[in-house]
Amino acid sequence: MEQKLMKGNEAIAEAAIRAGLKFYAGYPITPQTELPEYLAKHMEKSGGTFIQAESEISAINMVYGAAGAGIRAMTSSSSPGISLKQEGISYIVGSELPCVIVNVMRTGPGLGGIHPSQSDYFQAVKGGGHGDYKMLVLAPNSVQEMYDFTIDAFDIADKYRNPVMILADGILGQMMEAVNLYTPATEKFDKSWATTGTYKKRKHNIINSLYIKPEESETLNKRLQAKYKIMAQNEQRVEIINPDADIMLVAFGIVARVAKQVLDDAKSQNLSVGLIRPLTVWPFPSKAFKTAAKAYLTIELNSGQMVEDVRLEVNGRAPVHFLGKMGGKVLTVDDIMAKLKQIAGA
């Protein structure tokens, strides 16, 4: 298998091309800019279209048009730019179009900073735009996973006709690791709903999210919620290490990489510690929380967002602690060990 040293942002771009990406529109913003740069260079060769749009708003609406035309489409940005895309994402959900959206998170609120963060968790998993909706949200923690999850994202999006988000952060986007490159077998999905021209052989297709009659709007919403129920049943992904441990760490993305180091240190200090790492943060991997742990420690690069989902799953059976870091610095092994010792009463 071909191996290459790549930045996380580049790995997403390469994977997308190999997954059959034929339309990309985006706008430069740190720390994801290598992604459009890579596509600008390589997409034309694969017969795709790359557009540097005039804004993130325009970019997501171009993706709406391309996805509605039945081809694989993607946009990417970092936190403030993802905020700008929210109306468009809501329209894409409402019109049941498949696409992939990448958020390489930086700090907020406002212009924030360009350092890594996980403070867009709520925005990604609870909706973000207007209306009742969900995106399937994949949370990689390595450059290889940036690649693998991107390949999967296009199939999941097509399967459910729903946008899929890759939720990464500035470190994952910028760091370089060796990546195994491969080209997936392309699965065929029915796209008879796409606006490709009637050629007078069928009634016109309409891509739309406007349902002015309450009954029709209710029907759409019920259909979406039924779809999310199926997605929640079928698409949960999680990595669990030491499921029988006394204290379970819960972490996603780059923080989970730090957490894995913590497991080694904890063992040498006779602490029984495990890790639950959601690979999908929506649907949240509820099945992973059927443990006999005496306590949970959720660690995040924010003020405490995923911890709310952990508390819902644990539902009072054990205390759920939180350790967070805001502003762009990353939690260290020492930070987490200190908190673990405090919880363990050691």
Binding site: K22, I51, I57, S58, M62, G68, A69, T195, N205, I206
Partner: peptide, 27 residues
């Protein structure tokens, strides 16, 4: 979108040229 017999997409407010760009560049 209800009145023309051709395939139609409904764009969010102001974004029709962006949506059209996505369609035209794809097809």
């Amino acid at each position: 979108y209800n009145y023309f017999t051709c395939d139609m997409q409904q764009a969010s407010h102001g974004r029709a040229p962006a949506v059209a760009t996505g369609v035209k560049r794809s097809l």
